[in-house]
Amino acid sequence: MLLLAVSMIASLSIGSAGLSFLDVWGILLGQLTGMPEGAEWTAGEIAVVTQVRLSRVLLDILVGACLALAGAGFQGVLRNPLADPYTLGVASGSSVGAAAIILFGLQLALGLWTIPLVAFGTGIVTLLGVIWLSRSRGVMQIETLILSGVIIQSFLGAFVSLMVSMSEGVVNQILFWIMGSLAMKSWEHVYMLVPFVCVAMPVLLAYSQALNLFSLGERHAANLGVRVERTKLVVMIMSTLLTAAAVSVSGVIGFVGLVVPHLIRLIVGPDYRLIIPISAIGGGIFMLWADTLARNVLSPKELPLGVVTALIGAPFFAYLLHRKMKLEGGVGG
């Protein structure tokens, strides 16, 4: 929590507009206390801080929290260390929707929200398709579920590639969306993500002890009174809602949902009652720093966010894993 606050303060203060630390906080305090008239800052500077930077910082945190929460949920319910928010094809589904919209030039058909809405919708439909494929006699087999996800993912991935190759003129736009970015976003995007986190996080927390029992095996969990099928469905749907919401706002940002829950697990142990809330905070911090780097390293040019998350996440993860293996002589669940 403390780390999150410090990161927010630091990230808010770093930027390409040439404002100092004191300027930024003077503006913020001025806005909060409602005394803008005595201010020595221009309207433009105030806008940079309140409209651009503050909303982007909050959006970083929310997208990171969504992806890390979804990753923790999927890893818990699929009991597979390679599971991430995109395993079940949600991201590919969203990408197909977004790519189609861009290809046919329909970005403004439903106003500013066209791409997020369509991406969200196609992401959810994809998950339903995967669940439908892997269900037999009311039971979802985990292995079949993962396989169905992989198959749908490659199938839809081919569609995206097809659309990219068909649209010579707007290739960059589709690729740019897929690579993920949090540039050019506004407060509306922040407001859009808040309800998802507010609903999904308590639900996932309520199921966190059930996820602990899942790690002993589905039968063990069932014998202790966990309703296995309902738990799987609820956790998957919540994780998918989080993923689809994050992807529809930011595009496909990799690595966060896979690695942050693992990092947290290496630090706090296998208890999902800790992993879930701390992953949310950790995902927020991780994304905040990644995006702060992305927009400042080659300022004023921005790096693709997915590139940064992988570049700083992978070495850190490798270090923690190596240290843990040296300490305990094995990784273990």
Binding site: G269, P270, G332
Partner: peptide, 11 residues
């Protein structure tokens, strides 16, 4: 008590 016992988890 399940056949095969408990898996080797990190708990």
């Amino acid at each position: 008590l399940q056949q095969g016992g408990l898996p080797a988890v990190g708990f």
